[in-house]
Each structure stands twice: as C-alpha cells, then as structure tokens.
Amino acid sequence: MTAQTAEITVSAQGLSRKFGAHTAVDNVSLELKRGEILGFLGPNGAGKTTTMQMLTGNLAPTSGTISICGVDLFEHPTLAKARIGYLPEHPPLYRELTVLEYVDLAARLHRVAKAGRAAAVAEALARCGLADVAQKLIGALSKGYQQRVGIAQAIVHRPDVVILDEPTVGLDPNQIREIRGLIHELGANCSVILSTHILPEVESVCDHVQILHHGSTAFTDTIAGLKQFHGGRMVLLGLKRPPPAADIAAVAGVARVEPAGDTLFRVSFADNADPSEELARRAAEKSWGLYRLAPAQSSLEDVFVHLTQKEEQT
C-alpha cells in the first residue's frame, strides 16, 4: 500500500497554451500522487479550465508534457485517457438518454469490459446517489442531479485520475456536502484534481492547493503548509481604544498593520517572529482595551487576495 501511495499519477511539466497572441496558461507544472486531492484555485479566467482541458487531452498545449501514470498523453493518447475521468464545466450530458443508458454508454466508451460493465455502472450510480433516478431521462433531472450524472460518467471506469471542473457549481448546500463526501471517498484510491473559486471548498476537501493567476502558478503547497504560511503570520487584533497604527507597528516583530474596521487591525508578523504575547502585554499596559487577539480566519481568502494582488502589482 505504501508503494501505491507513492505512485505518481499525474505529472505535467511546463504547460503553456496560447490562443493567438493571448497566453491563457503560462508554464504551469504539477505533480500528483495516488490518494492526493489537488485543488485548483483562481479567479475566473485564471486558466483553470484550460489547464484541465490540456490534462484530459481536449486541448493540445502549445508546449509542455503531460504523463498519466507514466503514460505520455501525446504519444499514447488512448492509453492515457483510459485512466482519466473528466467532468468538464458543462457536464457533457445527452438529454434524450436515461441516466442508466448514459452511464452505460460512458462505460462502453471507456472500454469497460462487458463482464464487469453492469456492476461498474451500478456502483457509479450508487456512489453518486443516482440509483433512484436511473430510469429517468437526463433532460428531466434537476441541475444537482445532472451534475451527479456528470460525476458518475467520470468515475464509472474506475479511473486513476479524476478531474472535476467546478463540481459543486449550482448545487444546494446539502448536495455540495454530498459531493464533497464523494470526492473525499474518491481520494482514498485515486488522485483527484478539482477546480473551484470557492475557497472553503479547497480547505475542506483538498490536501494540496495550487493557485493560478493570469495563467501561471501563484502558489502551490499542501493545505497544512498554506495554513501555516498564512495563519502563523497574521492575527486579528481588536482594541476598544485603539492607538495610532504606528504605535502597534512599533511592537517588536510586527511587520505591518492594516486597519480592518474601526477597532480591528490586521497585524502581520515579521518572519520567524511571534509577537502575540508582546502585543497582549503592551495592550494591557497602555490600556488599549484588548478584546480580541485571534489568528486571522478565512485564511485562504487572505492568501488568495494577497497572492493575486501582489502579482498584479509586479
């Protein structure tokens, strides 16, 4: 099992894609091992979908290489594609088919052997909670169910890599929770790449995150690394009688102070420093009326804004 966990399923090096003069994706690399869930994060137009289209062989990259489980996607496209399950932004559904017919078709197209096909289809339907609507026409289903049919299509051939482009868009909170549960389950024995611009989604589902901005990688690390990168370096400071910001900035180890409301401040720490204790002591001493000293929550959002805006400035 340990050998399997270490197996690299997706490896993409130096992916670039140009549309005429416009560069949609610029030198993006990623590597994923079995059992890992990678979250692609980025604002609209950051190149998430283009990258996924390239990873699934729907779009040829201008430069770069992709290999799926060691199989080169461009030299042996059919072998590599057999190991990928892909749910595009718009689920590719045939409205005139029933759910069962459609998932069965997807299984045939992915060359699932006849002997195990019925079982594979039944399993995919069960995992996506579609067993009750198997005989309904896809066109008659609600958006949430259609999305699930799209996921069923992507997992029916038990791929090693599942690529989901915004899988929870347009779903209600209960359905989102179910889909996230399913993604977790998938992550147990294959690699999952999902794209989203919903920040908590990445936090709750993924164990790796890659932030794209203007087509290039702005940040890539594990979720834990991301939290550490950010959470340890910034606190939210609430003072009932706030002094001038310069007074707070004067505390040793404080790198930057930004007002975040009348009495709230975002305090960034300098590298390898933790002036929380010092801040508390200083606040008590000078009677600033400390009522809050907490690691800045919504951490991903901050990192996101921070990274993407930083890039814009450069």
Partner: peptide, 14 residues
C-alpha cells in the same frame, strides 16, 4: 453546441 463532444474526446478513442 451542447458541449457533449468532450465526452467522446476524453474517452480513450481516436
């Protein structure tokens, strides 16, 4: 138009 071509192109088919 319905963007269903993706299903065929993503499948292991030439």
């Amino acid at each position: 138009r319905n963007q269903t071509m993706v299903l065929l192109i993503s499948a292991p088919l030439s």
